[in-house]
Amino acid sequence: MRSKLFVPASRPELFAKAMQGAADAISFDLEDAVEESRKASARGTLRQYLSTPEASAAGKTLIVRINAIDTPHFADDVTACAQDGLHMLNLPKVEDPDAVRQLAAMLDALERERGIAAPIGILANIESPRGLRHAAQIALAHPRVRGLQLGFGDLFGPLGISQRETSALQAVRLQVRLAAGEAGIEAYDGAFVDIADPEGFTVDAKSAFALGFAGKSCIHPTQVALANDAFRPSQEEVDHALRVVAAAKEALNEGVGAFKVDGKLVDGPFITRAEKLAELGRALGMA
């Protein structure tokens, strides 16, 4: 999921175009993008759309960003959106693992009631100092958690930290990536709000990719191609990874634990990294 495009749930005229675009995932937004008085109607519109053949046939990862657990919209959002074909609910402003477990319990009940075959995952947002402090516990809270996602605006804004401050961005990204890594799930980068600065978006996205992030939120369609490119390994990296994987199989048969590929020493952790890169390369048609 290199690119995840936000689409306001109150703008159904944008749904088809978004689904036909190049984003790996579409995140229908019931939270920040929808004004308070329109949340109920947006919820109803989205519920109807998610049940259409168009939605299920798009081949996209389908996500809904619901309203936070302490809002009056939370339960209604979950009830409306939990249906076949939805891949994940994006839970914003998560500050402790109990919020994740509460959402998971609701999904358990709705899936049983509605006969939903494929379990709906949870993408948990880390958007506050407390959430950041509890990131590992949140990631480990329930098997439904598929990823952690950063929200820089809510995290940095109240603290007066610039979203362009590289040291702050990388420090927080590393914490979230390590927390996701402990749970064996992916980490996804937050949005870059300056739509008119594609170069800045690319630098920002590549900085996240360098820390092992799997993808990035996009708030405008023009950012999708930039994200897809930034979170794509080079052909040289994929080719090297494939050689490492092949050499590892030979080494295993010979009982060798460490060996050289392209003049570089390779052992357990590097093999794991190579296997992941090779898998990504195959998924992107690079292998």
Rank of each mutant, 00 (worst) to 15 (best):
P8L: 12
A9G: 15
E13C: 11
F15P: 02
A16E: 15
M19L: 15
Q20P: 03
Q20L: 11
D24V: 01
F28W: 07
D29Q: 06
D29A: 05
E31Q: 13
E31A: 11
E35Q: 14
E36H: 14
S37G: 04
K39Q: 08
K39I: 13
L46I: 01
Y49G: 10
T52K: 08
T52G: 07
P53I: 11
P53R: 13
E54A: 15
A57G: 06
T61K: 00
L62E: 02
I63R: 00
A68W: 00
A68L: 03
I69V: 15
D77T: 03
V78G: 13
C81N: 07
C81M: 15
Q83C: 12
Q83R: 14
G85N: 10
G85L: 09
N90C: 07
P92A: 01
K93F: 03
K93C: 06
K93M: 11
V94A: 10
D98R: 15
A99Y: 05
A99D: 03
V100R: 11
L107R: 12
R114V: 13
L123M: 13
L123R: 13
I126H: 00
I126N: 01
E127F: 01
E127M: 06
H134S: 09
A135V: 08
A139T: 11
G147R: 04
G147P: 00
P158C: 05
G160Y: 11
I161T: 01
I161A: 10
Q163E: 14
E165N: 15
E165V: 01
T166F: 06
T166H: 10
S167L: 07
A168D: 06
Q170P: 05
A171E: 14
R173A: 00
A183E: 12
I185E: 10
A187G: 04
Y188M: 02
D189C: 02
G190P: 00
G190C: 01
A191T: 00
A191E: 01
A196L: 10
P198D: 03
G200R: 12
F201L: 15
T202G: 04
D204F: 14
D204Q: 08
S207L: 08
S207M: 12
L211N: 05
A214C: 02
K216Q: 15
K216E: 03
I219P: 01
P221A: 04
V224E: 03
A225L: 09
A225H: 11
F231L: 05
P233F: 03
Q235S: 03
Q235V: 00
Q235C: 00
V238Y: 05
H240D: 08
V245P: 10
A247Q: 14
L252W: 11
L265M: 15
V266T: 13
G268V: 06
F270A: 10
T272K: 14
K276T: 03
L277H: 06
A278T: 08
G281D: 12
L284P: 02
A287P: 12
